[in-house]
Amino acid sequence: MVLHNRLSATELKQKLAAETFRRVTVSFYQYAKIADPQAFRDSLYLSLSQIGVFGRVYVAHEGINAQVSIPEHHFEAFKQQLYAIPFLNGIRLNIAVDDNGKSFWVLKIKVRDKIVADGITDPSFDMDNRGRYVNAAEFNRLTEDPDTVIIDMRNHYEYEVGHFDKALEVPSATFREQLPMAVEMMQEHKEKNIIMYCTGGIRCEKASAYMLHQGFKNVFHLEGGIIEYTNKAREQGLPNKFKGKNFVFDERLGERISDDVISQCHQCGEPCDTHTNCANEGCHLLFIQCEKCAAKYNGCCSQECTDVLALPEEEQAQLRKGIDKGLMLFNKRRKR
C-alpha cells in the first residue's frame, strides 16, 4: 500500500489547475500524547488522501499540527474522519480568511520530534499547564487595560507585514530563539496581564505554558490565533485590532486582514506587503517585493540573481551545486 505521493510537482500542479470544484483551506492543531506517531501518520495519510486532501501535517509524540486544503464537497467527510479520532473530537478548525483554493497541491504528512520546534529540554516542562484562552471579544476588552502587554510570538517577517495594535515584536526568525527572549523582555512586566498570540494558536499556546513555567502568573493566549480572531470579529461585528496582512505558510504567503499596508518593498522602499521567493532557485530568498521591482528584477531579490536567472538552466544548475540555502529570509536586523 502506497502511503506517499508518486507524481511530480508539475503533474500535481496541473491536476490542481484542472479541478472544477472549490477547496477550503483549514488549519488545526492539538497537543496530545501520541504513543506511535508513525502508525498514526500512516493511518491519517490513507484516510485524507482518499478524499483528496492536500496540505502539510506534522505528527509527533506531543500531538499534531496541520494546514490542509479540502475539496468543499468532502468537507463534512473530513470533519467526520477527524472527529472519529478521540483526541481530535470536536477540534476547532481555523478556516482561512482570504482563500483562493490554491494553498496546497500535494499531501505531505511527516513525523517530527515535536510539532513546534521549541528548544525546550527541561523534563519538568508541562504543556498541560498553559495560559488561559481569550476569545476575540475578551482580547479586545483586555487590550484596553493599560496593565496588559501584547506579545507577538511569530517570526520577524510575519510581524513586519501585519500585527495587532501595540503588540511587541520578539525580533527573531525562529520560535526556539523567541521563547527565552520573551521571558527576558517581560521581566519588568511580570505583574501585568500578558497576552500572547500567533497565526493559528499553536505557538502562543506553547509560549504561554513556557511563561508559566518561568514563574509568570497572568498569562493569556489568543484562542485560534489571528485566523480565529478575524473570523469571530467579522461574525460578531467587533472592532478589528489587527492591521495589515497575516503571513501564512503555504502557496498564498499571506491573507489580507485589513486594508492597511504597514511594510515596504525591500528593494525600493515603497509601501508593499507582498512576500515572494527569489526566482533564482540557487537563492530562493523570502522577501517583500512590489510589482515594479518584480518586473525590474524578473522576480529576483538582486541584480546578481537576475543575471543568474538569465543563464541557461544547465549553467544555473551547475551554480546551485553544493549551495546550502538554509533559512533564507530577508532580515532587516542583519546584513545579507
Rank of each mutant, 00 (worst) to 15 (best):
P123Q: 10
P123V: 11
P123I: 11
S124F: 01
D126N: 15
D126I: 08
M127E: 10
M127K: 07
M127G: 04
M127P: 10
D128K: 14
N129I: 15
R130C: 13
R132D: 08
R132A: 12
R132N: 11
Y133L: 12
V134C: 04
N135H: 05
E138K: 08
R141G: 07
P146N: 06
P146M: 06
P146E: 07
D147W: 00
D147P: 00
D147M: 06
D147Q: 09
T148S: 08
V149R: 00
I150N: 02
I150A: 01
I150H: 01
M153C: 09
M153R: 05
H156R: 09
G162I: 06
F164K: 09
E169D: 13
P171S: 09
S172K: 08
Q178E: 13
P180S: 01
M181P: 10
M181S: 09
A182L: 01
A182R: 00
V183Q: 05
M185Q: 14
E188C: 03
E188V: 07
K190M: 08
K190L: 04
K190T: 05
N193W: 08
N193M: 07
I194F: 13
I195A: 00
M196F: 01
M196R: 00
Y197P: 10
Y197L: 05
C198S: 14
G200T: 14
G200L: 14
G201P: 03
G201F: 10
R203V: 04
K206A: 11
M211K: 04
M211E: 03
H213Y: 06
Q214W: 02
G215S: 08
F216E: 02
N218R: 11
N218W: 04
H221G: 11
L222W: 01
G225W: 03
I226C: 06
I226G: 02
I226M: 07
I226D: 02
I227P: 00
E228L: 08
E228N: 15
E228T: 11
Y229M: 09
Y229S: 09
Y229L: 08
T230S: 13
K232R: 11
K232P: 01
K232G: 01
A233W: 01
A233I: 12
R234I: 13
R234Y: 12
E235D: 15
G237Q: 09
G237L: 09
L238E: 10
P239Y: 00
P239N: 04
N240W: 04
N240T: 14
F242P: 13
K243S: 14
K245C: 11
K245L: 13
F247K: 06
F247W: 10
V248K: 07
F249A: 13
D250F: 04
